[in-house]
């Protein structure tokens, strides 16, 4: 079982992830139309790129935009959640051991305590995100079961990883559950609304170009995001 989930299944999920992301990017670019979107992308590339970069960078900075500042509590949740989501799997010690074994290289590995902290932070952030979804009428009205499913997919590797690592319950069970959860997560990224993994950058870039080229970018220093 272990061999299967770490062997063919792992390959499969990585393939779906990578091919899926690439397909998304290609599809997105091909679907852009200067006339339908009403943005002269090609003609004013320099303005466009400037707008796109501004639009992405400001939004990657915690409290970097009016909107992030407007919802401080949620912003902290989202950033905690996302930083944990992206960095923990990459820099956790166990993953790097695997990398070293299989491909002969590894990244910087974070200390164990930090990994635990990040994992718990992600889980707590998700709990708050769920609480918020239920507490605020304006979010409740938008929420569908699908949202919970996606959240569950995202947080499952963390919960299972935590349990496995600390050997709570059956280690082997939780290990395999963790690997499976991770693979499901990878597959889900291109296939569900988790595609905002890449969609975020594409969409932000597009709106940034829109503002950078058409909506004022050529007559001002740029939109104050």
């Amino acid at each position: 079982m272990y061999a299967f989930v770490t062997g063919p299944l792992a390959w499969l999920s990585f393939t779906v992830f990578i091919v899926g992301i690439i397909a998304r990017i290609i599809w997105y670019f091909r679907g852009l139309s200067w006339q339908l979107d009403r943005v002269a992308y090609k003609e004013h590339m320099a303005y466009g790129i400037k707008g796109a970069i501004r639009s992405i960078v400001f939004w990657l900075i915690p409290f970097g935009t009016h909107s992030w500042r407007f919802y401080p509590f949620f912003t902290i949740c989202v950033f905690t959640f996302h930083i944990g989501l992206l960095f923990t799997p990459l820099f956790i010690f166990g993953h790097n051991v695997l990398l070293q074994e299989r491909w002969g290289f590894s990244l910087w590995a974070m200390p164990e305590g930090m990994a635990d902290f990040m994992t718990v932070a992600v889980i707590i952030a998700v709990l708050f995100i769920i609480l918020r979804r239920n507490a605020l009428p304006e979010v409740r009205i938008l929420t569908t079961p699908y949202d919970y499913l996606v959240l569950a997919i995202a947080v499952a590797p963390f919960v299972t990883g935590l349990l496995a690592h600390h050997q709570i319950g059956n280690y082997n069970f939780w290990l395999i559950a963790h690997i499976l959860a991770g693979e499901i997560f990878l597959v889900a990224i291109p296939l569900t609304k988790l595609s905002h993994f890449i969609g975020f950058f594409l969409s932000r870039a597009q709106l940034g170009m829109d503002y950078g080229i058409k909506r004022g970018g050529m007559k001002s220093k740029g939109l104050a995001w």
């Binding site: 139309s33 909107s67 304006e138 949202d147 609304k193 595609s195 969609g199 975020f200 969409s203 597009q206």
Partner: peptide, 16 residues
């Protein structure tokens, strides 16, 4: 096209 479809699809339903 892709712009509008993506918008409809990736909305996080976050209410921001």
């Amino acid at each position: 096209k892709s712009r509008l479809r993506t918008w409809l699809e990736i909305c996080a339903h976050c209410g921001m």
